[in-house]
Amino acid sequence: MANTPIADVVLHPVRLRIVQQLGGRHLTTAQLRAALPNVTQATLYRHVAALIDAEIVTVVDERRVRGTIERTLALGDRMAHVGHDDLEAMSDAELRNAFLTFLGALGDSFDKFVDGEDRTLRNYLGFGTTPLYVTTDDLAKIQAGLAELLAPYRTDSGDDRVRVALTTAVIPTPPTTDPDEN
C-alpha cells in the first residue's frame, strides 16, 4: 500500500481526521481514541493500520500497558499532503469528493470546538476569505513564504502553546465572460 497514491489513502473521512489529529505531535492510540470519540475502537485501529501500511503514519514508540502494547503514533515519512500531481490525477467527481471530505473534517473540528467547555479559546477563532490577484509565480512565492513562516510552529514544543488548525484553500476564480461579447 506504500505505493498507493496518498489521496487514495488519506481522503477517507476517518483517515483524514486521524492525520489531522497527528499533525505536529505524537499521540498514543488511547489519546487518539479520546480525540475521536465517535469513531469505534475497531474502526480506528483498522484505519490506523492502513495509514501505517501506506507509510503516512509511523509508530514512534511502543510500551506495555496492562498486558497490551500501546503505540505512540506520528506522521510518517510520506507525510500526509495531497500534492498537485495527486490532485491533477483525480477525476472531477473524485476531486469534488476529496474537497467535501476535507470540508466535512473541517466542520467536525469546528463543531468540537464550539461544543467545548473552554470559552477563552474563542479568542483564537477566525475565518474569512480574502481575494488575491496573483500570477502562478506569485502564488508559488506566497505558498513558499507561508511554509517558511509556519515551519517553527508545526511541532508541539511541550510548552504552554495552544494547538490551532490553520486551514487554507486556494480556489481559483474562473474568468467571467463579458455578456456583451456574445
Rank of each mutant, 00 (worst) to 15 (best):
G107F: 00
E62Y: 10
T130F: 04
L73F: 11
H84T: 15
A30N: 09
T130W: 02
T120W: 03
V59C: 08
G158N: 05
M90S: 01
D159V: 10
K112L: 13
D108F: 00
R71F: 09
L73Q: 05
D156C: 04
F113R: 02
R71G: 11
D53Q: 15
L75I: 08
G145V: 04
L16K: 02
M90E: 01
V170M: 09
V134T: 15
T168Q: 14
Q41T: 12
A34T: 14
Y45P: 03
L139Y: 05
H84L: 15
P152C: 06
Y124A: 11
A80G: 08
T40A: 15
E148G: 11
V170S: 10
P172L: 01
R66K: 08
L149G: 06
P172E: 00
Y45S: 10
E181Y: 12
D160I: 08
G104A: 03
P37R: 01
V65P: 05
V48K: 06
L139I: 06
D61M: 14
T135P: 02
T28D: 09
L36C: 02
A140H: 15
Y45Q: 12
V164K: 03
T173F: 06
A147N: 15
R163M: 05
G104Y: 00
P179Q: 09
A50G: 15
H12E: 14
G145Q: 04
A165W: 12
R66V: 11
R17E: 01
D178A: 12
R66T: 11
V134K: 05
G116A: 06
V114G: 02
L22P: 01
N97L: 03
D180R: 13
G116F: 04
F127I: 09
D77E: 15
P131R: 08
T29R: 13
D86P: 02
T130V: 10
G126I: 03
T155Q: 13
L121V: 06
E70A: 13
P152N: 11
D108E: 07
E181H: 13
L132S: 05
L95T: 01
M79C: 12
R119A: 07
A165G: 12
H12R: 10
I142V: 10
G24I: 04
T173L: 09
D111W: 05
